[in-house]
Design a protein around this nucleic acid. Structure first.
Length: 485
RNA sequence: GGCCCCAUCGUCUAAUGGUUAGGACACCACGCUUUCAAUGUGGGAAUCCGGGUUCGAUUCCCGGUGGGGUCACCA
């Protein structure tokens, strides 16, 4: 049997990182088994419909490199893949269940249902529909429907049974049917609820494995009852653990970033993000920390997914992203950095050529792209010296520093540009010069670095000089000396 | 509250019926060093509790406790 999985998000306007992980696991599982991935849009809630959300979602999937075989924008034998375009299918199936006696029309008003719920809550009873409309004759139903009365169709959950299903991650799960509510299948607006649409589509689209979040476990028995009512074979279920806030509650927007677009906007690399979330709840039993998507596909095993939820540890993501940053080429790094620099209005000086040097310095010092440019700020913005005494090293004096800055200016003036643009070469030259002059390293290197950066903390003087070039270096040393003198 | 799920360092996790319970992030110390990073070396840090099975349990079973999820004409 060919494996078919599906990613079935509801288009709410942004992609939750937890949903991305679910999508990833569906993807890894299907690709591992040489199967098919279906993207299905679950947009049956008209009130929550967000225009453009689907297109946005597809774009995000593309950005993180998760492709799919069937779905919106792609042909496939089981379309359409947008549920709002399939209402007739669900209506037919709901009516079929009514005919078979597995479902029934319900005319109860929201007011009555609300009151019922309130009463049950007060009596600490199970919150369930009381089946008032179950006994309505079909003639009466027809008549009321003909009159235009609004109705829903409810699933008739069988009495006094234990409903059981196998979960590839958790084993056997069973619930007594008397605990389960007669779920609404078809809403009064003619749209299906998640439960109906999901089961009908999974069956019709021949989905073999349903991989979804743990929060669906409580409603899975309803789905099982539905499969039985239809007389269909069930797919394999796998409920993956939730992603958690630091306080262990379900990952929420309130407690930090949860949307994939936020993570991307902060400058996490897609590969790093994928690598990171893949390992949140699953791991291939090895000490390796970095995996390509291909490796993940090769190693993925749904039965080895953990049962307990995983707190999203941002520090580790930062570390991993830094690792990925170190791994990409200078060219890639610059391409990624460009939009971030632009948004800060940081432009390279005219004629700037030492991009490799710049990438090397930045890569080493930042965790994610939105930090880009801060470490080499002095390349983009002329430093100001509010406090020139910063130029004096803690073990040195102002007089000494003024003299050294003057000497440095002469020294740099004597060096060919080429020797300045190579930080390693420059370091050799300067260290040799310091020895010859019998200076203290700190007496020279601290003021040089501050003169170039204007900052208390910055990359080293050689790295900065190589970035700035001879003319700017000489100019800044000169300015510093004048300021201090 | 009912139902369901879960339980190894602070966090992500590995392992086993017998181990000094392993790795990673974070943290701390030291080294390098002109600052801050990066980096190198080292360190502290966990099997929720109570029974049972067993020669032996962190691992298997039961109970407790704790945490979470879910109880819509949302998905």
């Amino acid at each position: 049997m060919k494996v078919r999985t599906r990613f079935a998000p509801s288009p709410t306007g942004y992609v939750h990182i937890g949903n991305l992980r679910t999508a990833l696991y569906n993807h890894l599982f299907a690709r591992h088994h040489k199967g098919t991935v279906v993207l299905r849009i679950e947009d049956t809630d008209r009130e929550r419909h967000v225009p453009g959300a689907m297109e946005h979602l597809i774009l995000i999937l593309e950005q993180v490199g998760l492709d799919y075989d069937e779905g919106p924008g792609k042909d496939g034998p089981f379309g359409p893949y947008i549920q709002s375009e399939r209402s007739a299918v669900y209506q037919d199936h709901a009516r079929l269940l009514v005919e078979k006696g597995h479902a029934y029309y319900c005319f109860c008003s929201n007011e009555r249902l609300g009151a019922l719920r309130a009463e049950q809550k007060e009596q600490k009873a199970i919150s369930k529909y009381d089946r008032k409309c179950l006994t309505l004759s079909s003639a009466e139903c027809d008549e009321r429907l003909k009159k235009g009365e609004r109705a829903v169709i409810r699933l008739r959950i069988p009495d006094n049974e234990v409903i059981t299903f196998e979960d590839s991650i958790r084993g056997t799960i069973s619930v007594h049917s008397n605990e389960i509510d007669d779920q609404v299948l078809l809403k009064s607006d003619g749209m299906p609820t998640y439960h109906l649409a999901n089961v009908v589509d999974d069956h019709l689209m021949e989905i073999t494995h349903v991989i979804r979040g743990e929060d669906w476990i409580p409603s899975t028995p309803k789905h099982v009852a539905l499969y039985r009512a239809f007389g269909w074979v069930m797919p394999v279920f796998a409920h993956v653990p939730l992603l958690l806030n630091p306080d262990k509650t379900k990952l929420s927007k309130r407690q930090g970033d949860v949307s994939v677009e936020d993570f991307l906007a902060q400058g996490y690399l897609p590969q790093a993000l994928i690598n990171f979330i893949a390992l949140l709840g699953w791991n291939p039993r090895s000490d390796q920390e970095r995996y390509t998507l291909e490796e993940l596909i090769e190693l993925f095993d749904i039965s080895k997914v953990n049962k307990s939820g995983a707190v999203l540890n941002k520090e580790k993501l930062d570390w991993l992203n830094h690792e990925y940053l170190l791994g990409i080429t200078d060219k890639e790094f610059i391409a990624h950095a460009e939009p971030f620099l632009k948004s800060k209005a940081y432009a390279f000086p005219a004629g700037f050529k030492n991009f490799a040097q710049w990438a090397r310095v930045e890569k080493q010092r930042i965790k994610k792209m939105n930090e880009v440019g801060e470490e080499t700020r002095c390349l983009f913005i002329e430093p100001t010296f509010e406090n020139p005494s910063l130029l004096v090293w803690k073990k040195s004096t102002q007089e000494k520093t003024v003299v050294i800055l003057a000497e440095l200016e002469v020294f740099f003036d004597s060096l060919p540009e080429h020797d300045i643009l190579d930080d390693k070469l420059l370091e050799e030259h300067i260290k040799q010069w310091i020895e010859e002059k019998h200076f203290e390293r700190g007496d020279v290197l601290w003021p040089l670095r501050v003169a170039l950066s204007g900052a208390e903390r910055s990359p080293g003087p050689f790295e900065l000089a190589a970035l700035l070039g001879k003319k700017v270096v000489c100019g800044r040393i000169h300015n510093a000396r004048v300021l201090l003198a």
